[in-house]
């Protein structure tokens, strides 16, 4: 049998991860439910004044998205680590960093993209304007892949640990600060009718930077964790 070429290996890995995720649908649904629930808790906590909710809404939605991303991060490598397929992946002749892109892409399609689908619902709950809702969708589309890419480094570093979960959030949360700042302030600006192009360009720049650097870091971390 002929060995798979790199694009084939990429596609196979992507399809495998998506199939696995489809078979365990609750893993997709749970972070999504968490996202909605956390957002819904805020009006109960701070009061239902529409003006107040409009002010803090962008921040709430983005912090909730960040927490939901953190919650789902462990699934990137956890089951592969448990059943040993991660070691098989390390033995593959293809560059590990490219295969990492496939893993992260699959993870984002399963956990990041659904956030985009429920986000309009949440922006209605928090009385955001239509403009703000559009900006929110764009920031989520640009920002959540960064969360997955950067988070993958953290997961790769902690995958072999027994209590990786809490450490993972300590490692990754500070690295999420720029995304949170640019994304939330973009949404807040567009709610106030201000231009948001600069914020969106910077978010896109972060995405480009994360896409080019983080797969290599993830691959290196994984090799260290599995050694």
């Amino acid at each position: 049998m002929k060995p798979a070429t790199l694009p084939q290996a990429f596609a196979i890995l992507l399809r495998r991860d998506l199939t696995l995720a489809y078979r365990r649908r609750s893993e997709i649904i749970n972070p999504l439910l968490f996202f909605v629930l956390v957002t819904a808790m805020f009006p109960l906590g701070v009061g239902a004044d529409p003006a107040l909710l409009r002010d803090i809404g962008p921040g709430i939605i983005w912090v909730a998205a960040l927490l939901a991303a953190l919650l789902s991060l462990e699934t990137v490598f956890r089951s592969d680590f448990d059943d040993g397929s991660l070691e098989q992946l390390l033995l593959s002749p293809h560059p590990l960093s490219v295969l990492m892109i496939a893993k992260v892409l699959a993870h984002w399609l399963v956990t990041g993209l659904p956030l985009l689908i429920v986000a309009p619902l949440l922006s209605i709950l928090l009385h955001l304007s239509d403009d703000a809702m559009h900006t929110l969708l764009i920031t989520l589309a640009l920002g959540t892949p960064v969360l997955s890419l950067v988070g993958a480094i953290g997961v790769a570093l902690t995958v072999g640990l027994r209590k990786g979960g809490t450490i993972l959030s300590i490692l990754v949360m500070p690295l999420y600060v720029p995304v949170l700042i640019f994304a939330a302030s973009a949404v807040a600006n567009s709610d106030a009718g201000l231009p948001v192009n600069a914020h969106l360009s910077l978010l896109a720049a972060l995405l480009v930077l994360a896409t080019s650097l983080s797969p290599a870091a993830t691959a290196a971390s994984l090799r260290i964790s599995m050694s």
């Binding site: 570093l157 500070p174 600060v177 700042i181 302030s185 870091a217 290196a220 971390s221």
Partner: peptide, 28 residues
């Protein structure tokens, strides 16, 4: 030894991020 190498990678990731964090916060 594994711990030291893992933390080195984390420190490197941090170094790339520090300027970004600094400027994002500055702007904020």
């Amino acid at each position: 030894r594994t711990a030291a190498r893992a933390t080195s990678i984390l420190a490197l990731v941090g170094v790339v991020n520090i300027p970004i964090i600094h400027f994002s916060v500055e702007w904020w």
